[in-house]
Design a protein around this nucleic acid. Structure first.
Lengths: 142, 142
DNA sequence: TATTGTTATACTCTATAACTATA
DNA sequence: TATAGTTATAGAGTATAACAATA
């Protein structure tokens, strides 16, 4: 190996999955630098709960494409931070989920930070390009 | 919550990171169904080693943007499967990495499977769209 | 019988800090 | 002193299987 020289990437740059991963890592880096205290996944859950107050854990798990057992620990954490609350449903096997006041406040703050983050990323594209990218990503998301 | 109805996704579909994640999950699903016995990450490492025979662990870690301590276990596994070998370098602090014959054979097989996988994904796009997508992803990958 | 939330457990991927052998 | 590889350890994030409560 020639030391000190950039590595040969072989066929990697031709692979869509690799390009997608690089793009996502770049976006995640900027997200993490922009939004304090919440990962992209956690924000997604808070948005889901905010948009569907009283949703059950199982339905949330299904929407987020995770096992319902996985949700338990995640929701435990959000509840321990007083961002959400569980309330026993009419069907008493279920828990309905709601954002607390603190949860709504934190989500609102996160969404403002995310707006800045999105603008920073979008600034690398024209408005047309941004629309194209969304459309192309939708085409391969099946 | 209205049971049995699709969840409201709130602002999520407007977020680039979310769209990127959905696209990547779709691509990874097809990858996993297409390529037996190797994750996308592992294939990437084999491609790197194949394209840079004798590369050291640290340089590989840098190229793959992981800590060098992270590489140790990963390389242990690949070596245990006899896909790579470590050889003590002239600078005796270093290990040079090479694919074994079995590693080259498995990589070649994986690359054929990946070609099919890429075609299946590309079939959702026109040739122009595919080129556009690559260009747009490159613009946001910084 | 079937479903919901839960627990116990485990696996993957990743990092930090400290060690060793070499330079 | 600095670097390469290693180890011990830990933390996300995820899953499967089995269980109690409830339907």
């Amino acid at each position: 190996m020639d030391p000190k020289q950039k590595l040969n990437q072989g066929a990697l740059p031709q692979l869509l999955g690799y390009r997608l991963r690089l793009a996502q890592q770049a976006v995640f880096r900027d997200f993490a630098a922009s939004v304090q205290g919440l990962s992209p996944g956690r924000v997604g859950l808070l948005i889901f709960i905010d948009a569907n107050p009283g949703v059950t854990q199982s339905r949330l798990a299904e929407a987020a494409e995770r096992d319902r057992s996985t949700m338990v620990g995640v929701l435990d954490q959000l509840e321990a931070r007083s961002l959400i609350e569980r309330r026993r449903g009419a069907d008493r096997r279920t828990n309905g989920l709601w954002l607390t006041r603190a949860g709504r406040t934190l989500l609102a703050r996160a969404l403002r930070a995310i707006a800045g983050h999105e603008q920073r990323i979008a600034a690398r594209l024209s408005a047309v390009e941004r629309r194209q990218l969304f459309a192309l990503l939708a085409k391969i998301s099946r």
